[in-house]
């Protein structure tokens, strides 16, 4: 490759932004938009993995009370206990869980930061049409990413306060470790249940475009299985939608109760 003596010279206007000084690897990846998309895809897939596992784990709510070591116990609470005791005694109790939590938090922050900076980049690059646009490929999911994203972020905060930390929106009956009862108390409030349903629809829509988009951003591409990428995104987001929306409905309809 020929190294230019100057930046490409030509008639016409200047670049809208100059290339920043190169940071050392791997930070330089994050300096480019494609690199940011890559980070966004990896962090997004981590978060999707979490959401999916979280949803599967929560299905235990339907098992109600199960006998463990001779004690009748809510299976959900037992599951939560198991998570806290992962890899004990190699690590002390709760360490692995906190490690995963910090990992997810980092992924979330990177996901939000890359999304924000890329949105700003696009906003600066765009020159809106004066007439109406007619979109063909861009669907509601892809065009609402910058709407569903903030909704999901807000939901995460509320959800943590409600069922993990037990403050703010949490019910008065909140008790650490009593997962099953906390859920039933919280979602027993119709307005909260509806909020959860709306938020989870946003989650699923976000994941639907996000997953397909992640394959593309990561360059995971082969015409032989490309159609599967859409299908995979549909199946995963569909399962997450059904699973997650079922919880508030189940509580409201007393399928799940104390």
């Amino acid at each position: 490759m020929l190294s230019p003596t100057t930046t490409p010279q030509n008639s016409g206007e200047k670049p809208m932004r100059e290339k920043p000084r190169d940071l050392p690897f791997p930070l330089n990846i994050y300096q480019s938009a494609i690199g940011k998309k890559w980070v966004m895809a990896v962090s997004g897939l981590m978060l999707v993995g979490f959401v999916f596992a979280h949803m599967i784990g929560n299905l235990k709510i339907y098992l109600g009370q199960v006998e463990h070591n001779g004690v009748l116990d809510y299976d959900t609470d037992h599951y939560a206990e198991t998570l806290r005791n992962l890899l004990v005694p190699i690590f002390p109790e709760g360490v692995v869980l906190w490690g995963m939590r910090l990992g997810l938090l980092a992924a979330l922050l990177l996901h939000i930061h890359s999304a924000y900076t890329l949105s700003m980049l696009s906003r600066k690059s765009d020159n809106a049409y004066a007439g109406k646009r007619d979109f063909l490929a861009a669907n509601w999911a892809s065009r609402s990413m910058r709407l569903t994203g903030p909704i999901v972020a807000l939901y995460i905060v509320i959800h943590l306060a409600d069922l993990t930390l037990g403050f703010g929106i949490a019910t008065g009956e909140f008790e650490h470790g009593q997962v099953y009862e906390n859920v039933v108390h919280s979602l027993g409030r119709p307005i909260v249940a509806i909020g959860y349903i709306i938020a989870n629809i946003a989650v699923a829509v976000h994941i639907y475009h996000g997953m397909w988009s992640a394959f593309q951003s990561l360059g995971i591409n082969n015409p032989a299985y490309n159609t599967l990428r859409r299908t995979a995104a549909q199946v995963i987001s569909g399962l997450i939608l059904i699973g997650n929306v079922s919880f508030p409905i189940a509580v409201l309809t007393d399928i799940v109760s104390i």
């Binding site: 020929l2 230019p4 003596t5 100057t6 490409p8 010279q9 030509n10 008639s11």
Partner: peptide, 8 residues
């Protein structure tokens, strides 16, 4: 052009 040898 990139090398500045051709002025376009």
């Amino acid at each position: 052009v990139n090398l500045g040898k051709v002025k376009l």
